[in-house]
Amino acid sequence: MKKLFTIVCLIVSGYLEAQVVPFDSSAWTFDGNGVIPEYYEGESALYLKASGAELSAADFLNGVIEFDMYLKDLWTFSGFYFRVADANNFEELYFRPHRRGKPDAYQYCPRINGKASWQLYHDQHRGVYTGNPEFYPQENHHGYNGKIDLPLDRWMHVKVVVSGNQAELFIDNEEEPSFFIHELKGPKVKGAVGIYTGWGGVHFANFSVISNDNQQLSKTSKVEFAPLEDRIMSWQVSGVIEEIKLVPTVMDPEVTNGLKWTKLASEESGVTNLSRVAAVQGKKNTVIAKIEINAEQDIIKALTLGYSDRLAVYCNGQKIYAGTNGYRTRDFRYLGTIGLFDEVYLPLKKGKNVIYCAVSESFGGWGIMGQIDREGIKIKGE
């Protein structure tokens, strides 16, 4: 018991020497039925299948997390998490061995109000910012997902270094980080760390964590990004409603009357993560994102939009657009990742115009982004 107590104390105190936490330590708590401690391929390991293991006493904010994974050619989403504020809010990173060598073999996925937001945070192409599906160099990525030739049938070392709102991910003991996460999006709190798998099983070994409030990152990895030009800077976001209450052709005043509105700023990329102010509650899976536009004269303006998963747009009460951008809604390979791929034309009248965007969520991220030329118009609150 004295040894186990010492291990937990080292984790909590931030002692700057890596200490492997044995999986038979009482410091771990386990979730799920697929949890098997065993000696595997030369290591004292933990096998997880659709299960997880957590060090609740880690109290981790900044520092280093390291462990080994033994991947097989299976459909699985397996990784780790940290900075746990509660069961619905934490930082998460995982690997897709069935996608090894592809642009989405690795994924950063903050969980906010219960929503895993991988459809909002990705590096698949410039389309997020330009509307054009053009792939671009790795060095210009935000670090949210990317290509890794994940090794199979052997131990792979994983190391993440966290400092402030950024992190570096090292794979297989490489000297340079495989990915630099430009901006962490989850809670900035001290909390638990853990490992988990979904679907196919994975072995873990040699897990260690070091808390270090003065943790430093590699100076060469930092990349700066310009904000999206003409992005909508913020939206007024309603409370959650049932999607079925939206009528086919107009915005029924009975839907909007009595709604409470919260101002939510967009990120530099233009993405506005609606989960920050709303949580899906059963059939209540829809919010209305609102902007008010003052036009100098009657004019038609193009509004470029990205969204996840479904969208209906109303201009002065009249429905002018509806679309679907969810996972596998267009073909079996379609991810539903957000990007500026849709455009609607707003018939603005001189003076005040109210634009409602009803956004409904099913899976993978709840968001909206918008871009509009400001010549001849002004958006309230900017």
Rank of each mutant, 00 (worst) to 15 (best):
F170Y: 15
F170W: 08
I171T: 07
N173P: 06
E175V: 13
F179A: 02
F180W: 04
I181P: 00
G186M: 04
V189F: 10
G194M: 08
T197W: 03
T197S: 15
G200W: 06
G201R: 07
A205C: 09
S208W: 00
V209M: 09
I210M: 05
N212K: 14
N214T: 12
L217H: 07
L217M: 10
S218V: 06
K219Y: 12
K222Y: 14
K222P: 05
V223C: 10
V223N: 13
E224L: 15
A226Y: 12
I232D: 00
I232P: 00
S234H: 07
W235M: 01
V237M: 03
E242L: 08
K245F: 14
K245C: 11
T249S: 11
T249A: 09
P253I: 13
E254L: 12
T256I: 14
N257Q: 12
S269A: 03
S269E: 01
T272V: 01
S275P: 02
V277Y: 01
V280Q: 07
G282P: 04
N285M: 02
N285R: 09
T286H: 06
A289Y: 01
K290C: 06
E292N: 09
N294S: 08
A295R: 07
E296L: 13
E296G: 10
Q297V: 13
D298C: 12
I299P: 01
K301R: 15
K301L: 08
